[in-house]
Design a binder for these strands. Structure first.
Ligand SMILES: [Mg+2]
Ligand SMILES: [Mg+2]
Ligand SMILES: [Mg+2]
Lengths: 178, 178, 178
DNA sequence: GGTTGAGAACATTTAAATGGCAACCTC
DNA sequence: CGAGGTTGCCATTTAAATGTTCTCAAC
């Protein structure tokens, strides 16, 4: 299999898992007041669900969520993508975007962890973006450009990516990957 | 009145307002999973209550909460302390500390806003610390060293205060002011 | 001395300082792609040089550059113009214009830009325009209509001008608008 | 005198928005 | 061509934890 197909398969499978999570539970009871940001709670929800939904999966194995209380953990989910005796480690970073706000440029991880990951022989850091809106009692996952979930690899991030003084990669939440 | 007494009166009155808020509503329905940080939601709650509780107040007037959606606003609450025809503007910054966590060193505002405030002829930036713990359905405000609320002025902050690369003042949440 | 002459002298002296800066270093190693803007970098360069070049100066004293990171700072450089025991505070704002970009038009376009800003409530005293072009390794300062530097003297800063707690400039204001 | 442990002090990382400004686009 | 609005790009600020390093005291 070509590398390109292989990578596309990973992305497609990740999208599918998270789409299923959203499909089974399209709203959460996490309250969102206007202008409030609840990324932390949404991420924890998706992390746990991801692990649950990949307990038995055609491609993903050994998924773990970011450990409780580890507020500086380098991944939200770690999982392995397995195909034809090849086993690829993935670090997933969820981004939860409130589409009622004007714009967003989330911190996207320290660049240092890219090195950590590569030194351990792996490569793939993946962002998974989800979109939401507050309602009276909590929040709904919603579509952006007709999709609920957008996954892409750090290696494909837009060239407008930059490093902030806090040593975080940063890229606009609506910027297309390459 | 001496400056010292005057300042002590401000602090005592601030503590009293927030103690009353907590007394009337000692728990919130904001869910706190272990290791999660819900400072944003707690701050918004306290901001609105502070405004409500100082609508008619012996000392505080014209309180306003941080405007909705302004995620970069320099204060959580702005209020005026009035006594003997003297009117003092205060900028309040709430800090919500989860006592189940090991430690905390919250970002405490950009140092640049100190100059902004001074240029406009004012001086008093106040931190108001509250403590909480998650429970099954939400959170309880709790005591730390037998107090629910600790207020102090930026000018009295511990000398261990430092500036982070993100241009935020930082100080340990349990550090005593001078 | 007439006001008009006085103002012309200030402008002439400002132009001279910046012309000297450009003369001593006619190119920078700041990379410029077409359509990109590097105003920030050029401004920082000119600010520091301006302070350096007016350390000992016939007319300018006590020059300071804008504090690092303060985007809301009302000036790029603050300096004092001294003549005959008269001391005038000047706030300088640099504008860097890439002549390769589509909008650039000599003479009339640029002053309009400046007036627009002024009408929208900005209050800078002097704008100093410099022109540049990208090259292979960085950028060159260039002439526009045979001049390297163009300064516009806008209007006096009223003594009632101040920065409000909401971080806005205000003239003749009484209460803080939010 | 060196080692260990504890505590203090500080650095780093995590959650995601708004705000500013030059360049571009449209009429 | 000019005016006005929009877009793209980046900087800054906001929510609060853990983790590392240094210092000092006790053994
Ligand atoms: Mg994440
Ligand atoms: Mg606060
Ligand atoms: Mg400028």
């Amino acid at each position: 299999m070509e590398i390109k197909e292989y990578e596309e398969l990973i992305i497609a499978q990740l999208n599918k898992v998270v789409e299923q999570i959203i499909d089974k539970g399209p709203n959460l009871t996490i309250a969102v007041k206007k202008g409030e940001r609840v990324g932390d709670g949404i991420s924890k929800y998706l992390e746990n669900k991801f692990v649950e939904f990949t307990k038995k999966h055609e491609y993903f194995t050994d998924s773990i969520a970011s450990p409780e209380g580890k507020t500086k953990n380098p991944f939200d989910v770690q999982t392995f993508f397995e195909i034809n005796n090849h086993r690829e480690l993935l670090w997933v970073d969820f981004k939860a975007i409130n589409v009622d706000n004007d714009d967003t440029n989330p911190d996207s991880g320290t660049p240092d962890k890219v090195l950590t990951l590569m030194n351990s022989g792996y490569f793939y850091l993946v962002y998974i973006l989800v979109y939401y809106k507050g309602n009276e009692t909590g929040l709904d996952f919603v579509q952006n450009n007709e999709i609920f979930v957008k996954s892409y690899f750090l290696k494909d991030v837009s060239s407008t990516m930059r490093i902030t003084p806090a040593n975080q990669m940063q890229v606009n939440g609506f910027e297309e990957p390459m």
